[in-house]
Design a protein around this nucleic acid. Sequence first.
DNA 1: GCATAATGGTTATGCGCATAATCTTATGCG
DNA 2: CGCATAAGATTATGCGCATAACCATTATGC
Lengths: 146, 146
Amino acid sequence: MDPEYADALNQAIRLLSLRHRARAAQLLAPLGLHAGQEAVLLELDRVGPLIQAQLSEALGCEPPSVTLMTRKLEVSGHIRRTPDPADKRATVVALTDSGKALADQIRELWVTLAEETIRDLPAATLRQLPGILHTMSTNVDGKSSA
Amino acid sequence: MDPEYADALNQAIRLLSLRHRARAAQLLAPLGLHAGQEAVLLELDRVGPLIQAQLSEALGCEPPSVTLMTRKLEVSGHIRRTPDPADKRATVVALTDSGKALADQIRELWVTLAEETIRDLPAATLRQLPGILHTMSTNVDGKSSA
DNA sequence: GCATAATGGTTATGCGCATAATCTTATGCG
DNA sequence: CGCATAAGATTATGCGCATAACCATTATGC
């Protein structure tokens, strides 16, 4: 492959990551949230209470990160962490009412973020875009291939 | 816009960011580099010595981040930081020989990373992809609009 | 020509991510 | 059973990013 193309591609992905995350942080700040925490709330709102291991899998980040993030969301009052009666190792994490309310607000913010992001892209591109991004994610995911 | 589409899009971007960065980190680790440092070396290799403010602009991250990253790359011996004689506030950053050699290796790694990333994507998509990513980046970049 | 603003850097602090090591509980197998 | 192994979670540490506050230098405008 052409090294210039490779460089342009990797750089573009890196820049998009930085900027998209930065913009998300701007939008989430008024809610008292930091970028990354919204994924926890949205996931819990989608599928209900989860074990931290399941949450880790869903978020695509490692267990230690989940421990710290959930702890902070707990002290903020948006999440409840209770020991799993069926498995004494596990702790199940669930949304509080405040967390549910926040999830709704996040979803609204995310519509505006998505609209900003795709501005001026043709409709045909928009139809393919989620699939393209998903393909690239799984392509580069070490856990599935290796 | 459809909230589900927005959610899927934002989530896909977040996941791609995490995974692409994680894979980059895996590839860079044997070189003794951490994800993010490669951008410094590649940029300096592209355009030559830079003031930190210019580097900050080019990398898309804030000056304090540049201070810390360049310091670490300096102690690793891949970069030289010298005071700018023309402007006593500025410090100019340049690659050492070791840094140049590393930049070459990074470019090779980035070809394999890019090839992995775009596996199974149709050629038509590949032609548009850099433009799409760039459009989204600038769309979501606060500094241009706000 | 001097006060004021703007620019370049750094320090301090905090968050999200990572890996490595450790502890506890579950589970599989002889 | 009992014991080795796996799985869930945490602690410690380190990096890349951010913002806020601060200092030193340069540029600006009356």
